[in-house]
Amino acid sequence: MTTTTASSAKEINQILGKIWNGVRRIPPVFPIFLLIFIILGFLNPKGYQTMNGIMTFFRPAAPLAVLAIGEMLVLAMGGFDLSIGAIVTMVVLASSKLLANDPEKALPAILIMIGIGILIGLINGLVVSFLKVPSFITTLGMMLLVRGATLYYIGGAPQGYLTDNWRQFGRNYIQDVPFFVKIPYALIVLLVLGLIFYILFHRTNYGKQVLAIGDNMRAAQLSGVRVKLIRVVTHILCSVLAVLGGILVGGYGGVNVTIGEGMEMQAIAACVIGGVLLGGGKGNVINVAFGAFTLQAIVNLLNQLGLPKPYTDVIQGSIIIFVVAYSALSSQRKR
């Protein structure tokens, strides 16, 4: 009798231990996001506890998540990509000129942008791999180049408009969906891209090789990873995601000169909140997407609290420092 209770107690303990272990392994980004979202729900039930409200929330949050996934690939490899903000600017401004207010040109414009995105990523990757310029510097140079060339091309300020069909991806909803009420195109784009990149990054050799390079480049090389190829491919993927993210951003926001400014930093912040280590070797598509949602939720939370916008910066700055400090110190303790 006593033995059975003891053993069952032991079992319960074991199960609890397992659960605790499982709980401990949940990345901090989920509880943070959940907490903020629950507070938001209390403050504004209509805005954040109805499907309608949640879908409205995802529309501006999805573009950043797309950018963050691309940035994550490069960060996981131990690199940086500072050019994605400039690519967003390019996509929006150059498209506005290419379109010339003609909806029929939407598809060609998007294809041209993706083509240029591939080219930018290719150059980034080649310069990093063969000229051995650190990616931070390569992409810093690329940022100046892309931004300057774009503004030169359009002549300093936008001169046309983005047509409605170009903008629909970032702007419109699929209406009257059962249960979800409405789904923003942007969220669907994010889900599709997220799925593709989840499989690519977590279920294929490519992802393992990226992480291997980020972990220890020399070791990866010795174990047969084609480092140069992987790096070029990764930079291309990042740039293409930046183009796609830019289409969503432009769709939501419309044309203006400053639209992509600082988005590279936002994307890096989202990655960091999503548990990516700068210096490489760690990364998770889903966590990073939630990192982006968290950033957006913080903005909304401060707004709901009636605090002026500047506090957003203070809070975001503090949070990214804390998340990194927390993970750095806790991983150190494990060692």
Binding site: F80, M265, I268, A269, V272, L277, L278, G279, P308, K309, P310, Y311, T312, D313, V314, I315, Q316, G317, S318, I320, I321, V324, A325, A328, L329, Q332
Partner: peptide, 23 residues
């Protein structure tokens, strides 16, 4: 002391200073 990557650390303080100034 906190072992935060300097890029993130100073990006963070930069945001904090920015917020304080703008507020």
């Amino acid at each position: 002391k906190l072992k935060v990557n300097p890029f993130i650390a100073t990006l963070g303080t930069s945001l904090i200073i920015k917020g304080i100034i703008n507020a």
